[in-house]
């Protein structure tokens, strides 16, 4: 199932690419994918290109893919060291009707709308929760320039 379905997704991505998402196979198997997403406009990530690593197990699409950032990003829902990210649709709210492209779009939305209530990066979460938007934006911007715009 996983292979046929991913093959289908692969063809669909080639037919209808999303201008903000480059999604491609990483290697020969359908297990590992690589995505490059554009930081959303009017966010501190604008202009940055962020690489994601996507792993699909044999139980995909019944089990969610594992997604992590390869590019360092300062964001409350992304672990700064490991790149692990916390987003409902990859955990409890996963549905097999989601595709890898949808998942990438959800990650772009997460960059646009951080959720400070369940932080994996406490520093980023605390800045947002204390209302220091300026502090948060400048930290996120600095790391975007340093790691995602080279």
């Amino acid at each position: 199932m996983a292979r046929n379905r991913l093959n289908k997704e692969w063809k669909e991505v080639q037919r209808n690419p999303d201008p903000d998402i480059l999604l491609e196979l990483d290697g020969d198997s359908f297990e590992q994918w690589r995505a490059v997403i554009n930081g959303p406009q009017e966010s501190p990530y604008e202009g940055g290109r962020f690489q994601l690593k996507i792993l699909c197990s044999a139980s995909y699409p019944y089990a969610a893919p594992q997604v992590s950032f390869e590019t360092k990003v300062f964001h409350p829902n992304v672990n700064f060291n490991t790149g692990e990210l916390c987003v409902d649709i990859l955990k409890t709210d996963w549905s097999p009707a989601w595709t890898l492209q949808y998942v990438c779009r959800a990650v772009v939305s997460l960059l646009r709308d951080p959720n400070a209530d369940s932080p994996l990066n406490c520093d980023a979460g605390n800045l947002l929760r204390s209302g220091d938007l300026r502090g948060f934006n400048s930290m996120a911007r600095m790391y975007t320039i340093e790691h995602a715009m080279s």
């Binding site: 379905r5 289908k8 097999p96």
Partner: peptide, 14 residues
Amino acid sequence: CNCCKNTSCAVCLE
């Protein structure tokens, strides 16, 4: 399948 809301299977995408 003609009587249903959707025209493809959202699990296998066929």
